[in-house]
């Protein structure tokens, strides 16, 4: 792995994970509101929401290491009229800004639920825009055949779904474990009421179980899609002349095997879990372990995949 690209690997993967997690939470809020009270949903969704912030900030900090002269960094907005890199930074800032605003509104319960939902909707749209703009940075380079293909936006979108939904799943099981731990105490964490009320304990667990089931479906579907699309992409590269064939080198050997194995293992674990554990009343401990393990496996797999992506940068010409 080329360490020089590590900032970009961390930035792109973590930013996509944040967008995906935000969207996953939005879907859970919207679909969940058909059957549950909004207070019940907030109780499981809010802790996950607050976990997105640090993830994104970590990604943005990492991206700074990619700038070799931080003193000139404020210039990066100037090129927005033609440069996708400028646009990426603008969208990254906007997503972080709206996300932060929404998180604060949610924490203090500012505004009406409708207003909060509108802010969340805008954030989600900006997030989708961010993933699109990110992929255009690479897609729009006519000089790099390995990047100027449909695979770039498609794989970025799949990373977003895969890691975003898994991250939410992991946040859910972690908070469940944490809550059980707090249940016997006063049920408060930094002043916020996080422990379930006795009354909606069952609903929270039910919502959690059905959310996890759908997350598993999303992970298996997008992981499966990736396993089909990667070979398709490589076949295309193989037909793209000398430069295309050279660009394929990072997609061979142990890394490639490892990456496919990690995704398959992560998605596979979740498939087993759907059948075995995701019932509202089962002991959450094995569930927490499985979901966390799946998240770690897929995260490592996707980081490897992004490393391969950067290494496949072979420019035409000289």
């Amino acid at each position: 792995m080329n360490l020089g690209e590590l900032p970009m690997i961390i930035f792109t993967v973590f930013a996509q994970m944040s967008v995906g997690a935000f969207i996953t939470l939005g879907v859970i809020q919207t679909v969940g509101s058909l059957r549950h009270k909004s207070a019940t949903i907030d109780r499981i969704a809010d802790p996950a929401l607050y976990a997105i912030g640090p993830t994104l900030v970590l990604g943005l900090i990492a991206s700074m290491f990619h700038m070799n002269d931080v003193f000139n960094v404020l210039n990066v907005f100037r090129g927005w009229e033609s440069s996708w890199l400028s646009r990426e930074i603008i969208f990254g800032m906007l997503f972080a800004g709206f996300g932060f605003l929404f998180a604060v509104m949610q924490w203090f319960k500012w505004g009406t639920p409708l207003l909060r939902r509108i802010v969340a909707g805008i954030t989600a749209l900006v997030g989708i825009g961010l993933v699109y703009v990110m992929s255009m940075i690479y897609y729009s380079l006519p000089t790099v055949p390995a990047w100027a293909t449909w695979y770039t936006p498609v794989s970025f979108a799949l990373t977003t779904i895969l890691l975003g939904s898994l991250a939410v799943g992991m946040a859910f099981v972690t908070t469940t474990m944490f809550r059980r731990h707090l249940l016997e105490r006063d049920g408060k964490f930094f002043g916020a009421k996080v422990a379930p009320e006795k009354a909606d304990h069952v609903q929270v667990n039910e919502l959690m179980a059905s959310s996890l089931r759908w997350i598993a479906v999303a992970v298996i579907a997008s992981g499966g899609a990736l396993l089909v699309l990667i070979p398709m992409y490589l076949t295309e590269l193989a037909g793209a002349g000398d430069v295309g064939v050279l660009s394929m080198v990072p997609y061979t050997g142990t890394t490639m095997f490892l990456r496919l194995a990690l995704i398959a293992a992560g998605a596979g674990l979740l498939a087993i879990f759907i059948y075995a554990f995701a019932k509202a009343r089962t002991n959450p401990r094995p569930l927490a372990i499985v979901v966390t393990l799946a998240f770690v496996l897929v995260l490592v797999g996707e980081m490897l995949g992004r490393a391969q992506f950067y290494e496949s940068m072979i420019r035409i010409g000289m």
Binding site: N75, V76, R78, G79, S82, S83, L85, S86
Partner: peptide, 9 residues
């Protein structure tokens, strides 16, 4: 293309 992609102008 170098000018077009440059984020800082």
């Amino acid at each position: 293309v170098c000018v077009q992609v440059c984020p800082t102008t």
